[in-house]
Computed example of a mutant assay.
Amino acid sequence: MKIGELAKQTGCPVETIRYYEHEGLLPPAGRNPANNYREYGAAHLERLVFIRRCRTLEMTRQEIRELLHARAAPNDSCTSINSLIDEHITHVQTRVAELKALEQQLIQLRRQCQAAHTNRDCGILRSLDNSVADGSTAPAQHHSGLAKPLA
């Protein structure tokens, strides 16, 4: 099948398939000698579906590489897979805690303005201005990886 058909069957954009090939997550497709188009087979489809499932779990490219490596060695112990998932769970738990802290900061910020005012009198804007004036950072910048500071 051509790359467009693979993309259609997996719901994965063509550019992403090419990226996965470039990154070594998906083996390069063979070329059809008649038209030089890339030809993908059932193994590509199966592997791409696996990669996509991993991505829905927000696994990194490195984690996916490790899982693909383990998948290629079916008789090895799955201890490394368990460890990888345990580490990923810890990472997710950290992110959940950061998001909960961010939620609390936003709730506290929202409490600064309970009624409609002019923007000049808005407690939220005043609070954000005061945090800049007193040298503290904006609430969203306290969370690594959740919000990027404006440059």
Rank of each mutant, 00 (worst) to 15 (best):
H143W: 03
L25C: 00
G30H: 01
R110K: 13
Q114D: 04
R38A: 05
I51Q: 06
A151E: 12
E46K: 13
K8M: 02
T79Q: 14
L84S: 03
F50I: 07
C12Q: 02
I89F: 08
L106D: 07
C54E: 02
E46S: 12
C78A: 12
A151Y: 08
C122E: 08
G41I: 00
T90L: 11
L48W: 04
V49S: 08
Y19P: 00
I51L: 08
R126D: 10
E103H: 15
E87V: 01
Q141N: 07
T118F: 10
T90S: 13
P28Q: 10
L6H: 03
G41F: 01
R55V: 06
P28N: 09
Y20H: 01
I3T: 07
E87R: 15
E46G: 06
V14I: 15
R95I: 04
E87G: 14
Q9S: 10
T16R: 10
C113M: 01
E5W: 00
N119M: 10
L67M: 15
G24S: 01
G4K: 01
L102V: 02
N75L: 13
A101C: 11
E46H: 09
G4R: 03
L26N: 06
A72T: 09
L106C: 11
I107E: 05
A43F: 02
V132W: 07
S131W: 10
C78E: 08
E21P: 00
P139K: 02
A34T: 06
A101H: 11
T60N: 06
L128M: 03
T60K: 10
H22F: 05
D76F: 07
R120A: 13
Q62H: 13
S83T: 14
A42C: 04
L68F: 11
R95T: 10
I81N: 04
A140I: 02
L57T: 06
L102K: 07
N35Q: 04
H22Y: 06
C12V: 15
I81T: 12
E58C: 11
A73T: 11
G135W: 06
A140W: 02
C113R: 04
N82G: 14
G11D: 05
T60S: 15
I64S: 02
R95D: 03
Q62S: 13
T10R: 01
T16C: 03
L26R: 05
C12S: 06
E5F: 00
Q108P: 01
G41D: 05
H88S: 11
R53G: 11
L109C: 06
A151T: 13
A133N: 14
L99R: 12
H44Y: 03
A138L: 09
S136P: 00
I51K: 09
A138Q: 03
A138R: 01
H117L: 07
